[in-house]
Design a binder for these strands. Structure first.
Length: 573
DNA sequence: GCCGTTTTCGGCCCGACTGTTTTCAGTCG
């Protein structure tokens, strides 16, 4: 898609101009355009054809001309010119921690370093530390930065990072003098993967807490340790490192610091620009009118003072949230009444029907659905028709014998390569809940994957589509789906689309959640649990739904049992 | 390069930490 190619081209221009020593403001313009294009849902070629380019935020005449140039010729003159002048691999060095554009420009100009490999050699031969303004420590720090880059292996999934953050937050909360600890950053915003962990604590003695934080047993490497801020890494599996930042603030600044350290960076820049327009100044200590603090103890006080409703952290991405007239009522974990997709020992789960039901009851749920795999999923010990019939009887028996929770019988039925389902209609009709999912042949393409799934959407026995795109975060790409078309089909067939809450999936992802809501489709947040403990992954599905702007009314399993029954009957018609 | 509830020119987000300096530039978040 041209949007993504253009975004990459502008990002590249910004990188090269940075090393070239161009104006920071010009560079920012290109970065902003790149970010905007990357997240633009509409095809930029259509926008260009309709002469609306300069109506887009952050895109003026100069950028619009370059967009047109790219559409017409497939290239941008400015980019070609920069690439001709600077080595191709030089911008890779911008990824190294502690090494920025100015220093890169110098090691290129004075040492002829053109790549990561060149740089390693230059450090090993002592040429970097010999440069004026660079010293031994700089050289070691760059070497460590390169090692970190090679080991960090990309971003960490939300489900791996959050438990680590919670454990560290508990440790810090128990340090003497600490009043309050909170998780900030992309983790708080519920990003599906995160680059580092940001923690915040309220305490009067910053130096002591930072000292304690950077000398914890699990610390692998200390990056910084001052009186208000500490930064260190811990070691994950396979030698990978994860950076943890801690910021210490006083009570009156806690809200300002939460706001500041929750980001996103783009959201914060916009917010501070807004403050400047009001003749105010916003930093991590508060909102100031001259020397007077006018807000800061709570996040809400800051947004209110800037004429905005409190914006939920999950929506702080500079993607339209500044237009809100009131705080959107997003779905919360307390709205969830049940979980409609889980497995038992009948197929590839680890627990019994009763164990799953009891665990769900403990979590306060009104209902669950037992949805084991269908016959084609042999690798997951999928159920033959005969086994399914027996399993349905077992679920009904458990339901009859269990008070306080409704246990629906169901199936997670494969959508086969030709779009047909793995059980005939009369068998599906025996199930209360049918989750239809693609598990095999995601790339084989007998028919277009969107059409394949729409076949299942239009089957009246299908309650919902499980993990619609089939992606596994950092492991397997999504199927090439036309999500708007899928969402329209789901809306008109009264078939729900799942937000699979497993942190390895988060599927639908938040951008697609937004598209589904706009199309009027019903969503459902399920854990796809294969063990009772995995029922707790519901929270990852919740943040994903919130990032997509979902309210409780958009989510099927926020309905009480009675309303759900009526919806199930209606959706089968 | 973008943009306007002071502006079509002259601004553009803000502070902490580090290293290599001897007052600050570079980098980061």
């Amino acid at each position: 898609m041209v949007n993504k190619q253009l975004a990459a081209a502008f990002a590249r221009i910004a990188d090269l101009m940075e090393i070239d020593g161009d104006s920071g403001f010009r560079i920012n313009s290109y970065r902003r355009a790149a970010r905007f294009l990357k997240s633009l849902d509409e095809n930029i070629e259509v926008v260009a054809r309709e002469n609306r380019l300069t109506k887009l935020p952050g895109i003026g005449k100069g950028t619009a001309d370059k967009i047109t140039e790219f559409i017409d010729t497939g290239t941008i003159g400015l980019l070609d010119e920069l690439q001709e002048r600077l080595p191709e691999k030089l911008p890779d060095l911008l990824d190294i921690q502690g090494l920025g554009p100015k220093k890169i420009a110098r090691i290129y100009a004075e040492l002829g370093v053109e790549s990561m490999d060149d740089l390693k050699v230059a450090i090993d031969t002592g040429r970097v530390q010999a440069l004026s303004g660079f010293g031994q420590k700089s050289a070691s720090s760059i070497a460590e930065g390169i090692a970190f880059l090679e080991k960090s292996g990309g971003r960490i999934p939300l489900g791996v990072a959050l438990p680590i953050a919670e454990r560290l937050a508990t440790i810090i909360a128990n340090m003497p003098g600490v009043e309050k600890v909170a998780i900030a950053g992309s983790l708080r915003r519920g990003s599906e993967t995160i680059g580092d962990i940001d923690l915040l604590c309220q305490c009067d003695d910053g130096s002591r807490i930072v000292e304690a934080f950077t000398t914890l047993d699990e610390v692998h490497r200390v990056l910084a340790a001052g009186s208000t801020r500490g930064s260190m890494t811990i070691e994950l599996d396979r030698g990978r490192e994860l950076q943890i930042d801690l910021r210490v603030v006083a009570e009156e600044s806690f809200g300002a610091a939460m706001q500041y350290f929750s980001g996103s960076k783009e959201h914060n820049v916009r917010l501070r620009e807004r403050a400047v327009r009001k003749k105010l100044r916003l930093n991590e200590y508060g909102l100031y009118d001259g020397e007077t603090r006018v807000a800061g103890a709570s996040e809400e006080s800051i947004y209110t003072a800037l004429g905005l409703p409190l914006i939920p952290a999950e929506l702080r991405e500079d993607r339209g949230e500044f237009d809100f007239s009131e705080t959107p009522k997003l779905v919360t974990i307390d709205d969830i009444r049940g979980d409609l997709h889980m497995h038992t020992i009948a197929s590839d789960g680890r627990c019994t029907i009763q164990e799953m039901a009891d665990a769900a009851k403990q979590r306060g749920y009104e209902y669950i659905a037992i949805t084991d795999h269908s016959q084609s999923s042999t690798i997951a010990n999928g159920l033959s028709i005969a086994r399914l019939e027996a399993h349905i009887q077992a679920v009904r028996l458990a339901d009859a014998q269990t008070d306080g929770i409704k246990i629906y019988s169901g199936t997670e039925c494969d959508i086969l390569a030709d779009g047909s389902l793995d059980y005939p209609d009369d068998v599906l009709a025996m199930c209360d809940i049918v989750v239809a999912s693609v598990h095999a042949g995601m790339r084989s393409g007998k028919i277009d994957p969107t059409t394949r799934i729409i076949c299942a959407i239009e089957n009246p026995h299908v309650t919902m589509i499980g993990h619609p795109s089939g992606r596994l975060i950092n492991r397997r790409p999504a199927m090439d789906l036309d999500i708007p078309r899928l969402a329209r089909a789901a809306a008109s067939a009264n078939t729900a689309l799942e937000i699979n809450a497993s942190w390895q999936r988060l599927d639908l992802k938040s951008d697609h959640v937004r598209i589904a809501i706009d199309a009027g489709a019903m969503l459902v947040i399920d854990t796809d649990a294969h063990h009772t403990e995995q029922l707790d992954q519901m929270r990852f599905g919740i943040v994903t739904a919130r990032r997509g702007g979902a309210s409780a009314a958009n989510i099927l399993n926020t309905m009480d049992h009675k309303s759900l029954q009526s919806w199930l009957i209606r959706s089968c018609q």
